[in-house]
């Protein structure tokens, strides 16, 4: 029975998908705006982990060329550099989004004096 190697062999996907929907659940169901933004961050981080785990190869080292390999390079020796690059971009995008989200939350707080979504909706309706 190779159920155990199967589960161990794919645990990275399970974990990332779990985090993905954990973040999404937090974004949909929480009423506090800051908690929603935290959910957003978990959500984005899970995708970053997903990509990075795709770059991993057993028995490979990080993609910086070692002095002794400069002649003939065996691709199996090094991790896949592309997902790292893509995720550097994704991290920066996530940070930028976080900055704008916090800015908007700050503006919302200055207008309504609260960060609870139901209180804000109440304030809008009673206005």
């Amino acid at each position: 029975m190779d159920a155990i190697p199967y589960f161990i062999g794919k645990y990275n996907y399970w974990g990332c998908i779990f985090l993905f929907f954990l973040g999404m659940y937090a974004m949909i169901s929480k009423t506090n705006l800051i908690k929603k933004i935290i959910g957003l961050n978990i959500f984005q981080t899970s995708i970053i982990l997903f990509f990075i785990s795709a770059s991993f190869k057993h028995d490979a080292t990080l993609p910086i060329l070692m002095e002794e390999h400069k002649g003939a390079i065996d691709p199996v020796m090094y991790l896949n550099p592309l997902p790292h690059v893509l995720m550097l971009t994704a991290i920066v995008v996530a940070v930028a989004t976080l900055g704008v989200a916090l800015t908007l939350a700050l503006k919302v707080y200055r207008i309504y004096g609260t960060l609870e979504e139901d209180e804000i909706n109440h304030a809008i309706q009673s206005h």
Binding site: G9, Y11, S55, K57, P75, P81, L82, P83
Partner: peptide
């Protein structure tokens, strides 16, 4: 996980 023969590690990288 970590399969060196997966498409991601054999096509472009």
């Amino acid at each position: 996980w970590g399969d060196p023969a997966s498409p991601a590690s054999t096509h472009v990288s």
